[in-house]
Design a protein around this nucleic acid. Structure first.
Lengths: 239, 239
DNA sequence: GGAAGATACGGAGGCACCCTCCGCTTAACA
DNA sequence: TGTTAAGCGGAGGGTGCCTCCGTATCTTCC
């Protein structure tokens, strides 16, 4: 165990590509109050690893070897691990932009006339995302599992995205209120999980349609099953 | 390459436990017309491996080490691989009984009054199965993917089970006809895939409810979207 | 421009697992 | 009881994960 010193964390965000940003966190010693700019080679290598990871994951799926990523990036395996201590960290970094786009799309769809249709469209876009990038499913898996608490960025973004669409539809009285955004996210991801089947896409789209239909407030069912619904406590919606 | 001889395959089924059977295929030389009974140690070892695999998979999930299984069975790794050349084969063998039970349950539910409710109950039972056995999800994954064609046993059984329930509901005019049993199986599995989340079970049950609601023929939606439905060709139902 | 020290690099190495191959053992049969 | 096919088991080669630490490189300060 090395001698401990009190230190404060300071961070900044650097734009490293036209549409990619990197967050740096520097450790500022509180005795000197000095901050050091990150080493150029570190920035470069981090970027190279991300680029290589994108290629490798999109091609080889989530199980692809990290050593292959490092090799492709022209970087030692140690360097890869220093920048991204876990496979999950790397995934999160690689697919962060996609998650943000999905999230922004939800923001736009908020203004759509028909809130149910908005949700439907958002889900369909999600399928497209998964279709394009093979590793995206893994990123979703991560988001949905959100076990590690630390890299819950994607989970938060996606939950809020779905949540806002769901809330609107519920407020408009068009959707049942006992489903949480997390539930929905999980269901969506689960269906997409079959993504390497032949014809998965149309199957998932069909399923999502069924699902959204089920989410609608149904006059018949509502009357028929009022008791059942009441017995099940409404799910608390986070935020 | 060893000298080839023409040979015919003969098989038989042995009951090796109160409720487990093993299928043996023996190679009968057509010159001697002799058939050899399987070696006792082979039968014993196969059984041991199955037993160990059940324990290990249920505890450690689908990624558990096969070497651990072999060790637990008190058997060399080579023996394990001889009996079950792939991890999938082992899964299929271990969870075959569960799949059969699910399938039989569908048979029983066929006589229920309300066909929609029957389907709902079957799906719920599926959740319970997954809940009990941690490795069951992997078995389902296998069934759903059914890529290897050879060990498509589970896929067939489950598809037929769902199919029979679905057919009845459709015939009764209570469910839409454009969803295939395969779709449904995939959706079900997908939802269960989150099985190691805290509270996954209630979440999945909620989702399945929504899903079944969506499957129902909806007077409102039906009228509103008649065109959309018609435009999408009905899925061919196998068998 | 150069020295000092912080920071990052890279890959060897230990571990675990996968799967195959083949010399040895054992059970079935006559 | 001998013969022989069937089965056993584990060594070994391959791959991937992750850590650790000696070395190289960069930033900063003079």
């Amino acid at each position: 165990m090395r001698p401990q010193r009190r230190a404060a964390l300071h961070g900044f965000i650097a734009r490293v590509q036209s549409n990619q940003f990197v967050i740096y966190i520097a450790c500022m010693d509180d005795q000197t109050d000095q901050i050091r700019k990150p080493r150029a080679d570190a920035v470069r290598n981090r970027e190279r690893v991300l680029e290589a990871a994108k290629l490798v994951f999109n091609a080889g799926g989530p199980e692809a070897s990290l050593e292959a990523v490092a090799k492709r990036a022209g970087v030692g395996i140690g360097t890869l691990y220093r920048h991204f201590p876990t496979r999950e960290d790397l995934f999160e970094a690689v697919y962060r932009r996609e998650v943000e786009q999905l999230s922004e799309l939800a923001e736009q769809l908020k203004n759509a006339r028909d809130p149910v249709d908005a949700l439907r469209r958002w889900l369909r876009s999600g399928v497209e995302f998964v279709a394009t990038k093979k590793g995206m499913v893994a990123a979703l898996a991560l988001a949905v599992q959100s076990g590690s608490e630390l890299q819950a960025f994607s989970f938060d973004r996606l939950t809020k995205a779905i949540g806002s669409l769901l809330d609107r539809a519920v407020a408009a009285g068009e959707m049942r209120a006992d489903i949480s955004p997390e539930d929905l996210l999980r269901a969506f991801f689960g269906m997409c999980y079959m993504h390497d089947q032949p014809g998965w896409q149309s199957s998932v789209l069909r399923m999502l349609d069924v699902f959204v239909d089920g989410l609608r407030v149904q006059p018949v069912a509502k009357a028929k099953k009022a008791k059942t619904r009441a017995a099940r406590p409404a799910v608390k919606r986070k935020r």
